[in-house]
Design a protein around this nucleic acid. Structure first.
Length: 282
DNA sequence: TGCCAGGCTTCAC
DNA sequence: GTGAAGCATGGC
């Protein structure tokens, strides 16, 4: 058991922000968090967090995973005060952080995420882990780790198709083959800058501009990546007709994007009714 | 029941 | 190069 004070972190908001799909919500304040080949229970009371692990494990794994060292208060303070929509979004999701998650896991999750909804993405990822992931033990019993590329590669399209991923199964099979064989090097991807990494990702079958940006943002922590999905598209159309001022936020625009995304996805009051009246569409 | 989802590839032009 | 069509499936 280890206690830690962390500012600008709200577990519920991170859980609901569409960047992680494997957290297990136990109640309003507690989650089981599987990541980096481990599992930990985290409980929140205000800015006080209790981790069901040792101080050593926290420092080794979870401090980095939660990006706890970054001062998000400082980043939020850089928002243009005259931008009412952005400042409202930041107030609404003020406990969002960009997790530093495993690259391979983010590749798989965001390939699955395309033209999909978050509850179903969670189910698909869970099914993938249960079917192919290594079974491990922790203090509460058994859990399934995230399956590696070679395992999914040797499973092949036929077995992946049984998971009900829809047409995305062939993208995942192709990706697993490329990574598992070494043809697509994750180490090269890690060493690349944002632009190079994005271009490398776009070469993969089933990875387009948006998914590549999500992988850059959530898997490589290139916080300059600004994924534009259906929600962000609607926000841009309704509130930023001349485009979001990405240049103003050069170097951390992806963090601003995440506040916008969470606000649109979860606030069903003001933000949605304030829109231009157009209904959701493609 | 029908619309929609953290979109992509393919094809017509 | 651009835009529409087609794609699998389940949440709501």
């Amino acid at each position: 058991m280890f206690k830690k004070t962390i500012r600008d972190l709200d577990l519920n908001q991170v859980y609901g922000s569409g960047q992680t799909f494997r957290w297990i919500r136990l109640d309003d304040n507690t989650y089981d968090v599987p990541a980096m080949g481990r599992m930990v229970e985290i409980t929140q009371k205000g800015e006080e967090f209790t981790f069901s692990c040792t101080k050593e494990e926290y420092n080794e794994v979870w401090d980095s995973y939660l990006d706890a060292v970054t001062d998000y208060g400082q980043i939020k303070a850089l928002a243009d005060e005259s931008d009412e929509y952005l400042t409202a979004a930041i107030r609404y999701g003020n406990g969002i952080r960009i997790l530093r998650q495993d690259l391979w896991e983010m590749l798989v999750c965001f390939v699955i995420s395309q033209n999909n909804n978050i509850p179903r993405i969670r189910k698909s990822v869970e099914a993938l882990c249960e079917r192919f992931g290594e079974k491990k033990e922790w203090e509460k019993g058994r859990y399934a780790a995230f399956p590696d590329a070679r395992t999914l590669s040797s499973a092949g399209l036929k077995d992946l198709a049984e998971l009900g991923l829809g047409y995305r199964d062939k993208y995942l099979a192709s990706l697993a083959e490329a990574v598992g064989s070494g043809e697509f090097s994750l180490d090269d991807l890690r060493k690349a800058d944002y632009g190079t990494a994005h271009a490398l990702l776009m070469k993969q079958y089933g990875i387009g501009k948006k998914v590549a940006d999500c992988i850059c943002l959530f898997g490589l922590h290139h916080v300059d990546a600004f994924p534009i999905d259906t929600h962000i598209r609607q926000i841009l159309d309704g509130h930023y007709p001349d485009g979001f001022p990405i240049e103003r936020y050069r170097g951390y625009s992806g963090i601003m994007q995440q506040y916008l995304f969470y606000y649109d996805l979860n606030s069903d009051g003001q933000s949605k009714t304030e829109r231009t009246g157009r209904t959701a569409g493609k």
